[in-house]
Write a protein that binds this DNA or RNA. Structure first.
Lengths: 335, 335
DNA sequence: ATGAAAGCGCTAACAG
DNA sequence: CTGTTAGCGCTTTCAT
């Protein structure tokens, strides 16, 4: 193996304590010894052992992050923000792909516990009691991203889903649309499901537009396929619709794909607005108008909050992140 | 803090050695003691400390993975494969976003060394001498993904870029195209640049089609924007072109976007084939025909190779992964 | 089958 | 300013 702090101490004729002090720049050594030690470190190519350090300091400078699907554009953008920030703050991140599987999630939580990570960021899934319990056991700070829990007092960072959905729908209305359908995710999803539907309804209601339950199609996810499959249903049943609000960009793009197959021109014959502002939104044809979630920043903020909790030992406030409409080319101005 | 092995030992009236043996199922204890100990472990909610274990065993069950851009669809697919496999094999993965920055990469390499990761996977970038040196210092197995080094003897897993480009071009030819342009990445890129251009040229040449250097446009990356920006140049200069081979799906989609702006119908007026088979390929309108790289499997294989090297201590063979055409809707059959 | 004891490489009192 | 000495929690000879 490589040289240890002992080797350095010996060669520099000092104690390991002194070397340690220098390494952690704690007070207690002369300029000369520091120089001498640094030189030896250089010569030996000494690299401190973070594992040993972690054993005594009880800090591993590592955080764990759980994603339902690391390879999704959604998750990877958040990961990017977390990683950049954690790195800046001197921590590494261990990624965990839960695959939306309870068993697997629990296994990961346990793993993270054994690895003694300093904290964990839990994203996009609903926090079950089981998760919460073991998270509490771990005795480490936790922050939720793109999810929240009403039952458990954990800080979260997310946009206001209802509000964002309201904004999206309102945008459609302000562009002259009144026959607006919605492609929703899972009805039962307490985070990305129901609230967005509520926001949609609220906007219609506030603008005096009647709400028709048949205008909402519920799916079992937020993917391209769900959008693609559900669009024909609305195209067929609701021919009078001029605009649709999709609860995710992937669904929006799926819907556009289906519309294309059906020979429906977007935005000429039908307007569509998405939700998320993933990379794909600007790459679609035509580019997708959408309500943006600041995913990168959400990751960034989460990492910072975690760090803050670590540093101060106290808890922090949740953060409602701002959302905003990104106007591109899929919504037509009516009238 | 939580209970330690000592607490377990004491409460079970055995030595820590025995508990350790049971935990690692090594021989040397009766069925009765095992049961007794397991019960205590349960009662105490004992969780072994992987940090302490790592200190003595010199294995952290953690690997480091470097990506130029974690949030790209390309990287995240590879990450997914690595993560799933590493997890199956009992390891965690620390992700490092190098941002294509030499300094940052070096910092990460150093960090991984301090953290005593068991191995590292280096992806998509060219391996400089500096990287190689410190990687060697680390004394841990390394595998390259989607890149390779002719100077240094490290195992890699990638497709045969020249061959894959050949296949893509050949597909166009077999569909009756003879006026074929190419949108390439950086000319100097020894992995994804030159080889793909060579494959393209070789295919033309093998089929007796004259090669025009002007039919190749070089860009400074593989992104959507590069494709979008360079397409107009070929549309303008080479009106006779009926098909284009883009060296990445993102570029292909960018090109399609530009074509759309220009009112050029795909595939009716122009065919296009991409490279990678990212998720976006099936989400584009129309769905993109492309030559697929098995990204997930590449990650999977890399993780397995790394594990193999760790297990046996010996080196392994590189893997050329199979590529294949995914026929979708952007290539028109001529004549 | 089981225990005692020596570390792994580092930090952190406590002495000087 | 600097060294000595305990550990951190675990594994691993070496005895018994």
């Amino acid at each position: 193996m490589g040289p240890t702090i002992k080797d350095v101490a010996k060669k520099a004729n000092v104690s390991t304590a002194t070397v340690s002090r220098i390494l952690n720049d704690l007070p207690g050594y002369s300029k000369e010894t520091k120089e001498k030690v640094m030189k030896v470190i250089e010569e030996l190519g000494y690299q401190p052992n973070a594992v040993a350090r972690g054993l005594v300091s009880k800090r591993t400078q590592t955080i764990g992050v759980l994603f339902p699907d690391v390879s999704s554009m959604f998750s990877s953008e958040i990961l990017n923000g977390i990683e950049d920030t954690a790195h800046e703050l001197g921590s590494s991140v261990i990624v965990c792909n839960t695959d939306r599987d309870g068993k697997r999630t629990m296994k990961y939580l346990q793993l993270l516990q054994e690895k003694r990570v300093d904290g964990v960021i839990f994203t996009s899934e609903v926090l079950t009691e089981e998760y919460y319990e073991t998270l509490m056991d771990m005795q480490v700070p936790v922050v939720l991203v793109s999810t929240a829990s009403y039952r458990y007092p954990l800080p979260y960072v997310k946009v206001d889903d209802k509000h964002a959905a309201y904004t999206a729908t309102e945008y459609l209305i302000q562009n002259g649309h009144t026959q607006i359908a919605m492609i929703s995710g899972r009805k039962e999803d307490p985070i990305a499901g129901a609230p967005r539907v509520e926001g949609y309804k609220q906007a219609l209601s506030d603008y005096g537009i009647p709400i028709h339950e048949e205008s909402i199609v519920y799916t079992d996810g937020f993917g391209f396929q769900q959008g693609q499959e559900s669009f024909p249903r609305i195209a067929e049943k609701l021919p009078e619709v001029t605009a649709v609000f999709a609860a995710s960009d992937e669904m929006a793009v799926g819907a556009m794909s289906a519309a294309y197959q059906l020979g429906i021109q977007i935005p000429d014959q039908l307007s569509i607005i998405g939700y998320d502002n993933l990379k794909i939104a600007e790459m679609s044809i035509p580019p997708l108008t959408t309500v943006a979630q600041p995913l990168y920043q959400m990751g960034e903020v989460a990492a910072k909050l975690l760090n803050e909790m670590l540093r101060t030992g106290s808890s922090v406030e949740s953060r409602i992140m701002p959302h905003h409409i990104v106007e591109r080319c899929t919504v037509k101005r009516m009238k």
